[in-house]
């Protein structure tokens, strides 16, 4: 299979206006062109990436990167964002993977990405899972509902700043955070007296 650089060059030549960045083994694509790039990967006769194996969402909190440039310490503030990683393989040519990354703008509100479900049916449940656990709204998804959590659930439990609700059951051997939580509930309040009917 071609290297990442070759794939990048070919995509940029074929799709004018698309700018890709390379991070490690993966190609970073912006939101507007994700669908075009995915369609190119699928239809290109040499790549023939007909199979999206894995779709994984990630949460990156705002962070700072300190680097030294020209004997000065430079601090860069990285805004927080949600990221989705796609692993494409080809069942016809039996090669792969080509890894695509796409990032949302910020992580507050309803960050959104285009859905690749119209192109790859296999992304349907995986995008629903990413929406459920991370709160990424996939534009163009035919049936974007919660899949693992129940419908009335409010928060997104896989985000890094998710705090579970304070409804711990008392544990006999508590540790660390659980211990702190338990202290609030221990000793348990006496059960409410049962009213005579």
């Amino acid at each position: 299979m071609e290297t990442v650089d070759q794939i990048k060059d070919r995509i940029e030549a074929a799709l004018p206006g698309v700018r890709l960045a390379i991070e490690g083994k993966s190609l970073v694509v912006d939101r507007q062109h994700l669908l075009d790039v995915a369609r190119f990967l699928k239809t290109d006769s040499e790549l023939a990436m007909d199979y999206v194996s894995n779709l994984c969402a990630m949460d990156w909190l705002p962070s700072q990167i300190k680097t030294r440039e020209c004997d000065r310490e430079v601090v860069r503030n990285l805004p927080g964002h949600l990221e989705v990683v796609y692993d494409f393989y080809s069942t016809a040519k039996k090669h792969g993977p080509v890894q695509l990354r796409c990032r949302t703008e910020g992580r507050e509100g309803t960050p959104s990405l285009p859905s690749i479900t119209p192109l790859f049916r296999g992304a349907e449940f995986q995008e629903r899972e990413a929406f459920d656990l991370y709160g990424i709204r996939f534009e163009g998804h035919p049936d974007l509902r919660r899949i693992l959590m129940w419908d009335g659930f409010k928060d997104f439990p896989m985000r890094k700043d998710y705090r579970p609700p304070d409804d711990y059951e008392w544990e006999p051997t508590p540790h660390d955070e659980v211990l702190q939580q338990t202290k609030k509930h221990w000793p348990a309040p006496p059960p409410a007296p049962v009213k005579p009917a």
Binding site: Y51, T91, K94
Partner: peptide
Amino acid sequence: LAINASITGPMLRASGVDY
């Protein structure tokens, strides 16, 4: 459809895809 829907394992191979 099997390929497009990322079906794997014996299900995919039962549909005739050698993967």
